[in-house]
Design a protein around this nucleic acid. Structure first.
Lengths: 203, 203
DNA sequence: TTCACGATGTGAACATTGTTCACATTATTG
DNA sequence: CAATAATGTGAACAATGTTCACATCGTGAA
């Protein structure tokens, strides 16, 4: 809380917050230690008291992004009404999770990008909440409710993750040729197509 | 073919080739115009006679990588023996294509990375051969042979692409938590799981 | 309270990068 | 053979990540 003080008070948080702003608007490629220090009003070298390198800063942002992704999956899952038979409900919860994953990528492509950006810095501890964990739980729930055969539940998380993550990266990268005969109307239609296919593959 | 000449002869090709070497061994992040010029034995500014910016060079490499990917898909497809009923054969060809896609990513992760690296430079013309085109053709073939219902063939390319591309990016990024209860033995087992699931979803 | 010390921030450097520009050299073509 | 377009050079500029000696501040031990 220093006013014009020599010390900032909480530079580390300020760095992460400011960096997040830059990532959200211009992508992780536009992230610069010097520019960050400039906007915070601190010397470039001050940042190195809190992060040993730019990559470590990015790794922190990446972790935070993955946690936000997992949280938005959880929120979507818990928003599913608890009505009707439990088996159907478990499937609806699973669907909501997958949809939330892809929607997150579409709404915050820069955040999604940094969440899975390759980094030389290894992720620290198991994350809470973790997107993978949420997925696995949802599939276990479906198996427990008899919505999918138990034999499928071993491969199911990988299959679901692949489909959902694949569509997300495809849509955010926009590397899909827009002509090519086959053309889908909107993003939501594509999401439905992939999620329906994933569920179909689990029967 | 100039020896010690002032002009290089074919700097553009030399640049692309040398850049490809760097990408293959150290990734696109390690690509540097100056270092490239250094190893070729030419001044940095000479490169700018052939590529208006580093990004344009990367875009050229990206295009080349995508074409190589498509070619390796085609090769795998055409290696499937032409025995047995045609419907089953069309499915086997489709499987081979998907497997080739993922194996390409695993064998040449740096190439795969640059193939889909986000670039500010738009891809030039429709590519030949294109991975998307190969996929669509294979699915049309399955539908024509009655191996999958025609109703599925509209969404099928997107679904297949998502699954196969998703697993590829997951495996090359190694962002899959190695513990997490569920654990698959090897890469080939994961490939089988995803490809089987994709085909199951097409029924 | 004082004061020494660890934590945090500063400024000036260094090496490196992408990119530009005026100029030099070569190939090509009228 | 001469003019011109293509190609390469060298020196610059601005920017970046990172380091290091030094300055300043907060805080706990005496």
């Amino acid at each position: 809380m220093a006013k014009g003080g020599y010390h900032h008070g909480d530079l580390e948080a300020a760095l992460v917050d400011s960096a997040m702003q830059v990532v959200l608007s211009d992508g992780v490629g536009a992230l610069t230690v010097r520019d960050l220090a400039r906007t915070i009003g601190v010397s470039p070298s001050a940042a190195y008291r809190h992060f040993p390198s730019r990559d470590h800063l990015v790794a922190a942002l990446s972790l935070r992004a993955r946690e936000e992704l997992a949280r938005s999956m959880l929120a979507a899952r818990d928003a599913v009404p608890a009505t009707g038979p439990k088996a159907g409900r478990s499937v609806r919860r699973f669907e909501a999770i997958g949809r939330a994953y892809i929607r997150f990528a579409l709404r915050q492509p820069r955040l999604f990008e940094v969440a899975f950006a390759p980094s030389s810095v290894p992720p620290p501890a198991p994350e809470h909440p973790s997107a993978w964990g949420v997925l696995v739980d949802a599939i276990d729930e479906m198996a427990a409710m008899g919505a999918i055969p138990a034999a499928r539940s071993a491969d199911a998380p990988l299959v679901a993750w692949a489909g959902v993550h694949g569509l997300s990266t495809i849509l955010t990268a926009s590397k899909l040729p827009s002509e090519s005969g086959l053309h889908h109307s909107g993003d939501e239609a594509m999401i439905d197509a992939v999620i329906d296919a994933v569920i179909r593959s689990l029967r």
